[in-house]
């Protein structure tokens, strides 16, 4: 049996912004960890959620499916979902799956924060 290899940390640098730092593998196994982080990040007055993928080691197609689920949840709560810190490889995967057309992608956290403000 394989183990979950994902840790998340939620930061709230602004009242309306939450950042989820992702460390490890985003696969189907990560569902509970990711959804718990999302619940923590999306409460209160959060309008934007930024997924920080700087610590991402690996993501498979089930992981992409989880991101779609997150995207739907943010849309239903009238929130915006952004991503930063993706390697060139995973940016390509966002393009392949056309997730880049629904999730704003920024090179790094500073770039995303600048765009939000």
């Amino acid at each position: 049996m394989n183990q979950i290899n994902l840790t998340t940390a939620v930061r709230k640098p602004q009242t309306s912004l939450s950042i989820i730092d992702i460390q490890g593998d985003v696969t189907g196994l990560a569902e509970n960890t990711l959804m718990d982080a999302f619940s923590q990040a999306s409460n209160g007055s959060t309008r934007t959620i930024l997924l920080n993928f700087t610590g991402l080691d690996y993501m498979n197609s089930s992981g992409i499916g989880l991101l779609v689920t997150l995207l739907i949840r943010t849309q239903r709560q009238k929130q915006k979902l952004l991503a930063c810190g993706l390697s060139e490889h995973y940016e390509e995967i966002f393009k392949l799956t056309r997730l880049n057309e629904a999730i704003g992608i920024y090179a790094d956290e500073a770039g995303a924060l600048a765009a939000i403000s």
Partner: peptide, 20 residues
């Protein structure tokens, strides 16, 4: 979700390239 997927042999190259 019931699955035991993880990073097989540290592989990150299982993905296709984006296409138009």
């Amino acid at each position: 979700m019931s699955t035991t997927e993880s990073n097989p042999q540290g592989n990150t190259n299982g993905w296709a390239k984006p296409i138009d």
